[in-house]
């Protein structure tokens, strides 16, 4: 499996990930605790923990320790790279189909 399809599969693997991606893309200035992020999509910190971890592993989100809290925010550079990889992949798929 190519890197692009692997990323795409992981991004589309849950509804929460979709909600998180929309939230951070619309609001790139969010830097918040996991509970704070969860509140902004109408969920709880516990329910989004695994999805946040996946997005951190992909590099789309970053984690930073601020005192006793962990802050989560969008890695704008890596996010741009991921979008480019997915865009190229989707374009090549279209060409194949065409």
């Amino acid at each position: 499996m190519s890197e692009a399809s692997d990323i795409l599969n992981r991004l589309l693997s849950s509804e929460v990930k979709g909600d998180l991606l929309v939230l951070f893309h619309k609001n790139p200035g969010i830097i918040d605790t996991i509970d704070g992020v969860a509140r902004r999509i109408g969920r709880t910190g516990n329910s989004i923990g695994n999805d946040v971890k996946d997005l951190v592993d992909l590099g789309v989100l970053e984690r930073k320790q601020v005192g006793k809290h962990e802050a989560i925010f969008l890695d704008r550079k890596r996010d741009g790279e991921v979008q480019k990889i997915i865009g190229n992949y989707l374009n090549s798929m279209k060409k194949k189909e065409g």
Partner: peptide, 10 residues
């Protein structure tokens, strides 16, 4: 910047 008060005060 969009954050929570507890993070800003930390």
């Amino acid at each position: 910047i969009c954050t929570s008060p507890e993070l800003l005060l930390e």
